[in-house]
Amino acid sequence: MTKKTFAYFPGCSLEKMAESYHLSTVEIARVMGMELKELEDWNCCGATAYFHVDELLAHTLCARNLAMAEKEGLDLVAPCSGCYKNMHACNAHLKKDHDLADHINFALEEDNLRYDGKIKVHHLIEVFSEDLKEVKAKATNPLTGLKVAPYYGCQILRPRKFEHENVEEPRYFEDLMTAIGATPVDFLLRLRCCGAALIITNRQAALSMVRNLLQNALDSGADVIATACPLCQVNLECYQDQVNAEFGTKYSVPVFYFTQLMGLSMGIPAKRLGIGTEFLSPPAAMLAACRKAAAV
């Protein structure tokens, strides 16, 4: 089988705040025989904020990244759902609207770049989900007994990226968790928004959204929530104290990246997966896997 190679766009959050997502991604890609070439000199995709202010410039920012990936002849993969959504949408717009593409290419000249719409944009979870057999084969330290609430959040699925995409009943996150030996629970609110930037701009609304998600994860019997986005992770994990203060609750639900769980199942030592930088410690079934991984 030929080695799969992608242009990797880590995004601002993965540089430090979500470094554990980055570390674990690099580790499991290596085990899976996938090459992630970090996009040279990538820039911020603009998050949601840029689209609040100026749409044309927001697309230009995304297009610069697309152009750099195209220059390498590689499809782009992003671990942050926000980055993925922005660059996917920009790609679709540029392929459809040639005037927009011309205008943006005129600006890209300043950095000796040009984009001709030749590449695709993927979310990280998509590229691993496509090869479940391989994931299963590599999961030599399966996470038996770990009950996981797979949290899709919004932007991976919405807005719809492909015409026939199942945006209401996806299964790939669950399937991926099954492949590593964990047990995905029926997490009813798995597609429900966590509040995103409202955590800053409308604290009350966001905290109540986070509370609903935590409660639902507990009700579904989960030991841990798995995420595929640095913003989902921070909102769900780092604001539990504030949720508890606001609603008089006592939540303490660990929240990890799916890549950290995959890495553990592959026997990679916890430290190399960034485990230890979280606010809330791993549940028992994960700790058992951590011990086994350290022993290998």
Binding site: T48, C154, Q155, P159, R160, L191, G195, T201
Partner: peptide, 12 residues
């Protein structure tokens, strides 16, 4: 609209 979280649930 300033409280919209851009979750696209309505859109889909």
């Amino acid at each position: 609209f300033w409280y919209c979280a851009s979750c696209y649930q309505c859109t889909v």
